[in-house]
Design a protein around this nucleic acid. Structure first.
Lengths: 249, 249
DNA sequence: ACGGAAAAAGTTGAATGCAAAACTGCAGCT
DNA sequence: AGCTGCAGTTTTGCATTCAACTTTTTCCGT
């Protein structure tokens, strides 16, 4: 008799299935992959630090085989690096890496906005509106943590509204890498930039309401461009620099 | 205390390092990953077919452990699917998948074009020009195989000229999935579409010469949009449909 | 002969074992 | 003191092993 596996036909391995509230992983490998990804993204290991194979095995209560499989996948996703015979390290993101990530995410969000306008429903817009005002509340209260949380969800909603799973998945992967930096560095945005970002979000919502694809596309791209600038400036201004250049390599 | 971390080794695991002529894989895992990826991309396994673990172990002369690690990575890349307790299958791409892939690649190339215009050198443009005329020659001779080959290289060059490794890697991954379909299905483009594509490529080259970022961006996006239409039409017109929807699920 | 249960064979997923490489500590040397 | 060579320990990469699940074959009743 098979234990409770009613649906056996679903593929288990998805790249970056983080973000979603659904997490019914069926296989051990998938479970470990998710948990380890979260573990790394949430910054439990310092930037550039070793990923202790043996300890993690104990932490998760598994053997090395599934853990190492997960490591290989995370390396492919770009979260960690594998050094031959020297184990895994959390990938250090320098200034250039962040610039690249924000640019690519800008391109993807820009595309998502354009596609979303073609098929988004009133309900989806209403939901994004709701999130927008929730975020505005956090902005007024200077509650940065929740602001970021909701901000992220708004962007995810827009990407989801593009009705393009490939896009959503690709986006989620890149977002995870940046999220890790957020967790570790806890970006303290300047007040001015924050206000600016709120205004940009209003423009985004406005274009979305009118389903103005091209306009939304441009606005999103510019929004990400500004985020990039702010992030890189922040990184450049930190004393130790969170690996500003680091890693001579 | 070691204050000087030698930072010796190069990371070995990169997502989709296909495409490049460089292949100095140091570890067995990386080697296997590359070889297996090529094996799948080149269509040695039919669409939706099982990936025979044991046979591949013999083929590559290794044990199951490194092979299974590579499978997990390929699944994360989206080339294959892992069914719990039922092994790996080559991922079937339906009409919708292709549409999504072309859209995302369109977004990425569009971005790449914009970025490339900012920093591309005369030499790089000259090289793309050279490839363009080479491709034109194949077009005149109706040499589809070489045409595709060079066409692909042109697009890769543009993406490379964006100076964004993250973009290049992401693009290469998606391109690999489509390449697999090309290998299996050997797209027979209609003559008319082919001529149209040549004209589009001329417009691309023209915009690139003038370093007209926005224009190149639009042209590339539209070019990919048209490719998408052609590909999907072709897929829809095939008798057995190359898994139009398929996979009972 | 046919349908279905039961057993055999084959695969898969994960744990364990083992050789080789890398790190650590220490002694000896300059 | 600081550097270098070396033995011991730890970690890594891969092979092998084992239990559980799937698929196939066999066998029995109708």
């Amino acid at each position: 008799m098979k234990s409770t596996i009613p649906e056996s036909g679903e593929p288990i391995a998805k790249i970056a299935d983080n973000g979603g509230p659904d997490r019914p992983e069926s296989s051990l490998h998938g479970e470990i992959l998710s948990r380890l990804r979260d573990y790394v993204v949430e910054g439990n290991i310092p930037d550039g630090g070793r990923v202790p194979e043996r300890q993690l095995c104990e932490l998760f209560g598994i053997s090395r085989t599934p853990l190492r499989e997960a490591l290989k996948v995370l390396a492919a996703e770009g979260l960690i690096e594998l050094l031959p015979n020297r184990g895994a390290r959390v990938r250090r993101l320098g200034k250039r890496d962040l610039e690249e990530l924000f640019d690519v995410m800008g391109g993807l969000e820009s595309l998502a906005g354009r596609l979303a306008c073609e098929t988004i429903t009133d309900e989806e817009i209403a939901e994004i509106e709701r999130l927008h005002y929730e975020m505005y509340g956090y902005y007024l209260h200077r509650d940065m943590h929740n602001y970021f949380q909701v901000n992220q969800r708004i962007h995810e909603r827009i990407v989801a509204a593009s009705r393009n799973e490939t896009l959503r998945t690709t986006y989620a992967n890149l977002a995870g890498r940046i999220r890790r930096v957020r967790y570790s560095a806890n970006f303290a945005r300047k007040r001015q930039r924050w206000a600016e970002a709120m205004r940009e979000h209003e423009a985004i919502l406005d274009a979305l309401r009118r389903r103005a694809g091209s306009e939304l596309s441009d606005t999103l791209f510019q929004h990400l461009r500004n985020k990039r600038t702010a992030a890189v400036e922040y990184l450049g201004s930190t004393p130790e620099g969170l690996a500003t250049e680091a890693v001579d390599g």
